[in-house]
Amino acid sequence: MRIVVSLVCIVTLCGCQREERQLRLDPPTAAALDGIALMPNKIGGAPPQIYFALDRPYETNAYNLSQGKRLYTWFGCKGCHGDGQGGIGPSFLDGWWYYGPETVSIFASIRDGRPHGMPAFRDKMTSEQIWQLAGYVQTIGAYSAKTAAPSRNDDKQTRPAENRAPAAILFNEGPTPVHPDQGPQP
Protein backbone atom coordinates (compact mmCIF):
# COMPACT_ATOMS: atom_id res chain seq x y z
CA MET A 1 0.00 0.00 0.00
CA ARG A 2 2.77 2.37 0.98
CA ILE A 3 4.55 1.62 -2.29
CA VAL A 4 1.39 2.41 -4.27
CA VAL A 5 0.94 5.72 -2.45
CA SER A 6 4.54 6.76 -3.00
CA LEU A 7 4.31 5.75 -6.68
CA VAL A 8 1.17 7.87 -7.08
CA CYS A 9 2.99 10.78 -5.44
CA ILE A 10 5.97 10.41 -7.78
CA VAL A 11 3.72 10.23 -10.86
CA THR A 12 1.81 13.29 -9.67
CA LEU A 13 5.06 15.19 -9.19
CA CYS A 14 6.09 14.25 -12.74
CA GLY A 15 2.94 16.01 -13.90
CA CYS A 16 4.40 19.26 -12.58
CA GLN A 17 7.16 19.08 -15.17
CA ARG A 18 6.03 21.42 -17.89
CA GLU A 19 7.44 22.40 -21.19
CA GLU A 20 10.59 24.49 -21.04
CA ARG A 21 10.25 27.94 -22.53
CA GLN A 22 13.40 29.39 -23.90
CA LEU A 23 12.67 33.09 -23.58
CA ARG A 24 16.14 34.38 -24.19
CA LEU A 25 18.28 32.96 -26.94
CA ASP A 26 21.98 33.70 -26.51
CA PRO A 27 23.12 35.99 -29.31
CA PRO A 28 25.76 33.49 -30.59
CA THR A 29 23.08 30.76 -30.75
CA ALA A 30 20.75 33.11 -32.60
CA ALA A 31 23.51 33.98 -35.04
CA ALA A 32 24.31 30.30 -35.61
CA LEU A 33 20.64 29.55 -36.31
CA ASP A 34 20.87 31.84 -39.30
CA GLY A 35 23.42 29.58 -40.99
CA ILE A 36 21.20 27.29 -43.05
CA ALA A 37 22.57 25.35 -46.01
CA LEU A 38 20.19 25.49 -48.97
CA MET A 39 20.34 23.39 -52.12
CA PRO A 40 21.45 25.35 -55.21
CA ASN A 41 17.84 25.59 -56.46
CA LYS A 42 16.86 27.13 -53.09
CA ILE A 43 14.48 24.24 -52.41
CA GLY A 44 15.21 22.06 -49.41
CA GLY A 45 18.45 21.99 -47.49
CA ALA A 46 19.74 21.49 -44.00
CA PRO A 47 19.28 23.60 -40.89
CA PRO A 48 22.46 24.36 -38.93
CA GLN A 49 23.80 21.77 -36.48
CA ILE A 50 22.64 23.88 -33.54
CA TYR A 51 19.05 23.37 -34.64
CA PHE A 52 19.36 19.66 -33.88
CA ALA A 53 21.43 20.32 -30.76
CA LEU A 54 18.49 22.38 -29.45
CA ASP A 55 16.18 19.48 -30.38
CA ARG A 56 14.27 21.15 -33.25
CA PRO A 57 12.71 23.72 -30.90
CA TYR A 58 10.70 25.58 -33.52
CA GLU A 59 8.69 22.56 -34.65
CA THR A 60 8.04 20.83 -31.36
CA ASN A 61 7.79 23.53 -28.71
CA ALA A 62 4.32 24.93 -28.04
CA TYR A 63 5.64 28.29 -26.84
CA ASN A 64 7.58 28.83 -30.05
CA LEU A 65 4.56 27.77 -32.11
CA SER A 66 2.40 30.27 -30.24
CA GLN A 67 4.91 33.04 -30.79
CA GLY A 68 4.95 32.05 -34.47
CA LYS A 69 1.18 32.37 -34.56
CA ARG A 70 1.43 35.85 -33.06
CA LEU A 71 4.04 36.82 -35.66
CA TYR A 72 1.82 35.44 -38.43
CA THR A 73 -0.69 38.16 -37.57
CA TRP A 74 1.85 40.84 -36.72
CA PHE A 75 3.72 40.67 -39.99
CA GLY A 76 0.65 40.57 -42.16
CA CYS A 77 0.93 37.00 -43.46
CA LYS A 78 -2.88 36.88 -43.39
CA GLY A 79 -2.98 39.53 -46.09
CA CYS A 80 -1.90 37.01 -48.73
CA HIS A 81 -2.14 33.56 -47.18
CA GLY A 82 -5.36 34.02 -45.22
CA ASP A 83 -5.85 31.74 -42.30
CA GLY A 84 -3.75 29.14 -44.09
CA GLN A 85 -6.18 28.66 -46.97
CA GLY A 86 -4.30 31.05 -49.20
CA GLY A 87 -5.57 33.95 -51.24
CA ILE A 88 -3.23 36.11 -53.23
CA GLY A 89 -0.48 33.83 -51.93
CA PRO A 90 -0.41 30.02 -51.84
CA SER A 91 -2.31 27.97 -49.32
CA PHE A 92 -0.53 26.05 -46.55
CA LEU A 93 -3.44 23.86 -45.63
CA ASP A 94 -3.49 21.81 -48.82
CA GLY A 95 -0.09 20.34 -48.07
CA TRP A 96 1.27 21.53 -51.37
CA TRP A 97 4.61 23.19 -50.77
CA TYR A 98 6.09 24.92 -53.80
CA TYR A 99 9.51 24.87 -52.18
CA GLY A 100 9.33 21.63 -50.23
CA PRO A 101 7.75 20.80 -46.89
CA GLU A 102 10.89 21.18 -44.73
CA THR A 103 10.94 23.94 -42.15
CA VAL A 104 14.31 25.07 -43.47
CA SER A 105 12.77 25.87 -46.88
CA ILE A 106 9.99 27.82 -45.20
CA PHE A 107 12.63 29.68 -43.19
CA ALA A 108 14.45 30.53 -46.43
CA SER A 109 11.20 31.66 -48.09
CA ILE A 110 10.43 34.06 -45.25
CA ARG A 111 13.96 35.33 -44.79
CA ASP A 112 14.98 35.76 -48.42
CA GLY A 113 11.61 36.05 -50.15
CA ARG A 114 10.51 34.12 -53.25
CA PRO A 115 9.66 35.11 -56.79
CA HIS A 116 6.10 36.17 -57.65
CA GLY A 117 5.46 38.38 -54.68
CA MET A 118 6.79 36.84 -51.47
CA PRO A 119 8.78 39.65 -49.82
CA ALA A 120 11.98 39.10 -47.83
CA PHE A 121 11.58 39.63 -44.09
CA ARG A 122 15.31 39.64 -43.40
CA ASP A 123 15.32 43.28 -42.25
CA LYS A 124 11.97 43.17 -40.51
CA MET A 125 12.38 40.20 -38.17
CA THR A 126 15.19 38.62 -36.19
CA SER A 127 16.26 35.13 -37.21
CA GLU A 128 14.71 33.69 -34.05
CA GLN A 129 11.37 35.22 -35.03
CA ILE A 130 11.69 33.87 -38.58
CA TRP A 131 12.30 30.38 -37.17
CA GLN A 132 9.26 30.70 -34.91
CA LEU A 133 7.11 31.81 -37.81
CA ALA A 134 8.48 29.09 -40.09
CA GLY A 135 7.75 26.44 -37.47
CA TYR A 136 4.19 27.69 -37.18
CA VAL A 137 3.63 27.79 -40.95
CA GLN A 138 5.05 24.28 -41.23
CA THR A 139 2.59 23.13 -38.57
CA ILE A 140 -0.40 24.50 -40.50
CA GLY A 141 0.32 22.20 -43.43
CA ALA A 142 2.15 19.38 -41.68
CA TYR A 143 1.53 15.81 -42.84
CA SER A 144 1.63 14.29 -39.37
CA ALA A 145 -0.09 15.46 -36.21
CA LYS A 146 1.92 17.11 -33.42
CA THR A 147 1.49 16.95 -29.69
CA ALA A 148 2.57 20.58 -29.31
CA ALA A 149 -0.15 23.04 -30.23
CA PRO A 150 -0.07 26.82 -30.55
CA SER A 151 -2.59 28.92 -28.67
CA ARG A 152 -6.23 28.77 -29.74
CA ASN A 153 -7.90 31.25 -32.02
CA ASP A 154 -9.91 33.96 -30.34
CA ASP A 155 -12.15 34.34 -33.34
CA LYS A 156 -14.18 31.79 -35.26
CA GLN A 157 -12.40 28.61 -36.32
CA THR A 158 -12.08 28.56 -40.09
CA ARG A 159 -10.04 25.38 -40.35
CA PRO A 160 -8.88 22.47 -38.19
CA ALA A 161 -6.44 23.28 -35.37
CA GLU A 162 -2.89 23.71 -36.66
CA ASN A 163 -1.40 20.69 -34.93
CA ARG A 164 -3.93 18.18 -36.29
CA ALA A 165 -2.15 17.49 -39.57
CA PRO A 166 -4.81 19.10 -41.75
CA ALA A 167 -2.72 18.55 -44.85
CA ALA A 168 -3.01 14.78 -44.46
CA ILE A 169 -6.79 15.06 -44.08
CA LEU A 170 -7.03 17.06 -47.26
CA PHE A 171 -4.73 14.69 -49.12
CA ASN A 172 -6.97 11.76 -48.22
CA GLU A 173 -10.12 13.50 -49.29
CA GLY A 174 -10.58 11.71 -52.58
CA PRO A 175 -9.40 11.30 -56.11
CA THR A 176 -9.75 14.99 -57.00
CA PRO A 177 -6.60 16.81 -56.00
CA VAL A 178 -7.28 19.75 -53.72
CA HIS A 179 -4.72 21.84 -55.49
CA PRO A 180 -5.25 22.38 -59.23
CA ASP A 181 -1.59 21.85 -60.11
CA GLN A 182 -1.00 19.02 -57.74
CA GLY A 183 1.43 16.55 -59.22
CA PRO A 184 4.89 15.25 -58.49
CA GLN A 185 7.03 17.48 -56.32
CA PRO A 186 8.64 20.32 -58.25
Partner: peptide, 16 residues
Amino acid sequence: SDPQTLKPGNNMPLVP
Protein backbone atom coordinates in the same frame (compact mmCIF):
# COMPACT_ATOMS: atom_id res chain seq x y z
CA SER B 1 20.51 45.27 -25.92
CA ASP B 2 18.76 42.63 -23.81
CA PRO B 3 15.00 42.93 -23.40
CA GLN B 4 14.57 39.28 -22.44
CA THR B 5 16.75 39.61 -19.36
CA LEU B 6 15.03 42.78 -18.13
CA LYS B 7 11.49 41.59 -18.81
CA PRO B 8 11.57 37.87 -19.64
CA GLY B 9 8.91 36.69 -22.05
CA ASN B 10 7.96 40.06 -23.48
CA ASN B 11 7.52 40.26 -27.23
CA MET B 12 10.46 42.49 -28.01
CA PRO B 13 13.17 40.36 -29.59
CA LEU B 14 16.87 40.79 -29.04
CA VAL B 15 17.97 42.52 -32.22
CA PRO B 16 21.69 42.01 -32.70
